[in-house]
Simulated scan of single mutants.
Amino acid sequence: MTLQGSLTHEEYCAQLLAETGRLREIVRTADLSATVPTCPDWTLADLARHVGGAHRWVGAIVATRAAKSVDPADVPEGAGPEGEDAAALDAWLAAGVEQTVAALREAGPDTEVWSWTSEQNTGFWARRMTHETVVHRADAALTARVPFDVPAPVAADCLEEWLQIGELPMVAARFAERGAGLLGPGRTIHVHATDAPPGVDAEWLLDLTGEAPTHRRTHEKAAAALRGPLADVLQVLYRRLPADSDRVEVLGERALLDQWLTYASFG
């Protein structure tokens, strides 16, 4: 399948800068020693280093037109500053994302580079880094106890990419054991963002009735349904917000949704 996004290459580049800017606001003001509830092996400082390291790694792939994966240890300043110096982390995040976006803009979306999917181009990385940053900003917002929101077109595309990734053969094979019993007759899940503005398609049907998971954008009755604001639905499907939160509504076969969330825990 094609990992097709709904934003332009330049829109992804601009959103990557914007999302990193929002993450940096949290880094500058929050307790960097705090444990990230959704990534409990990390402190907030560790989370910032993870995101900034990913940016610089992708920047190295794009800038060098890499035909194979780059060892993160070979990326200049890829590990980031040690400790919990907010100013140092902030400056490092800013410099790294600016370098990466400059490389992405210079390359355009169609330059051939390595990726871990069949999409061997720079456009894949612009989209992937945008949504990687969105989801980890949600982690940071939860840690700092500040609101999380995201522009509707970006959130909808983030969810669409997540569902596309879940259908990749390499992902399905990796999580086949975890998904035992997931597929079968009548097993469908409707995902409905209730606050999507006009022009933003934010309804999906997860079809688990065949030999592998598939999805399509549609309003269709299903065995289970997840409804709520787009940012909250995004967080539930990425397992950043529990499905029993009062911010969303689950209808029908709750066990089926729980089984899907267990299967698709790669986000």
Rank of each mutant, 00 (worst) to 15 (best):
A45R: 09
D46H: 11
L47E: 03
L47W: 12
R49M: 11
R49V: 14
R49A: 14
H50C: 10
G52Y: 09
G53K: 09
H55L: 15
W57C: 11
W57I: 14
V58D: 04
G59N: 09
G59L: 07
A60Y: 06
A60I: 03
A60W: 04
I61H: 04
I61S: 02
V62A: 09
V62N: 01
V62P: 05
A63K: 13
A63L: 09
R65M: 07
R65L: 13
R65W: 09
R65N: 09
A66K: 08
A66L: 11
A67E: 15
K68D: 14
K68F: 06
S69R: 09
S69A: 14
V70S: 00
V70Y: 02
V70A: 04
V70D: 01
D71K: 06
P72H: 06
P72I: 04
P72F: 02
D74R: 13
V75F: 13
P76Y: 14
P76Q: 10
P76H: 13
P76A: 15
E77I: 09
G78P: 10
G78C: 12
A79N: 14
G80F: 04
P81G: 11
E82G: 15
E82V: 12
E82R: 13
G83F: 14
G83L: 14
E84T: 15
E84P: 05
D85G: 14
D85N: 15
A87F: 10
A88R: 07
L89R: 04
L89F: 10
D90Y: 12
D90V: 10
A91N: 06
A91Q: 11
W92P: 06
L93D: 05
L93H: 05
A94I: 08
A94T: 14
V97K: 03
Q99M: 05
Q99G: 10
V101P: 01
V101N: 00
A102V: 03
L104R: 05
L104S: 04
E106T: 15
E106I: 07
A107V: 01
G108A: 01
P109V: 02
P109Q: 01
P109L: 01
D110L: 03
T111P: 01
T111W: 02
E112V: 15
E112G: 07
V113A: 03
W114L: 04
W114C: 03
S115W: 04
S115I: 00
T117C: 03
T117V: 03
T117G: 00
S118T: 15
Q120E: 10
Q120H: 14
T122A: 06
T122N: 01
G123I: 00
G123S: 02
G123W: 02
F124K: 00
F124H: 03
W125E: 01
A126I: 01
R127V: 00
R128M: 05
M129P: 04
T130A: 07
H131I: 00
T133H: 03
T133D: 00
